[in-house]
Amino acid sequence: MSLISYFKRKKSAGVAKDRLQIIIAQQRTETNDTPDFLPMLRQDIINAIAKYTKIDVDALQVDLQCKDNNSILELNVVLPDKIAS
């Protein structure tokens, strides 16, 4: 029992850090003077995928994470069952 709660506790600061990393990256892209291309890129990606498949637009996730000098563009697409199989 104490072992479980020990690991549970370990997690909360880590969770906080992960959440903050995403939020701060977003904040920084919002305040940047450079035009935010993410919404447009997102739309283009959706259009391209929708051209070939019947995807659920809500099931598509595009996230941008910035850490140090690296930016990671994360794309999450759930393809319909028919195509997937």
């Binding site: 506790r9 370990k10 997690k11 909360s12 600061a13 880590g14 906080a16 850090k17 903050l20 990393q21 701060i24």
Partner: peptide, 17 residues
Amino acid sequence: RVSSGEMLSIEDIKELL
């Protein structure tokens, strides 16, 4: 509280900000 994992550490905050 940092060593028990319930508080952001110095390193975490430095890295974030």
